[in-house]
Design a protein around this nucleic acid. Sequence first.
DNA 1: TCAATTTGACCAAA
DNA 2: TTTGGTCAAATTGA
Length: 156
Amino acid sequence: MYRKKDGAVETVLVVAARMGNMGTPPDDNYVWRKYGQKEILGSRYPRSYYRCNHQKVYKCPAKKQVQRLDEDPYMLRVTYRSSHTCQFSTTSSFSSTATTPVNYGPNVHNMADLMFENTDSVVPFCEPYFNNDSLVPGAASYEDSWNSTWQSYDMS
DNA sequence: TCAATTTGACCAAA
DNA sequence: TTTGGTCAAATTGA
């Protein structure tokens, strides 16, 4: 159901403006195994449920759910739940910059909270999460993307 | 062949 | 009861 202040529930908006990457959300540092899909009332698109691929049912409670927005199928709302204990994948392509789960920036738009009851923080991130330099959220390019995101976002 | 994904059903919470 | 979430089994692809 709706989890609002239930520990770690971080909602991130992802612009799926990538051909070929449409139905699949961008990969973070983790491997997700899809364990279910359900249609959500009020939304026209089903929601996909993912879980950590390694800690299937063992311990890592890391969960992730992805759902497209009603009016903007090009946008994916990725909601991360719980904390990640598994930062290591079998065949990891990343090794050094994978310190923090995702570059959850300090920039939190509470606007989403007004629109969505179950949105804690909204930090849209695009394709390049892994930069050799730094994962500093607040880059000009990112910010620009955010604006675009919000523009097409405000219609509710 | 193996593994991941798929769909449906079941269960729990509101 | 309804909606959402999870599990389980079956299927598909590599």
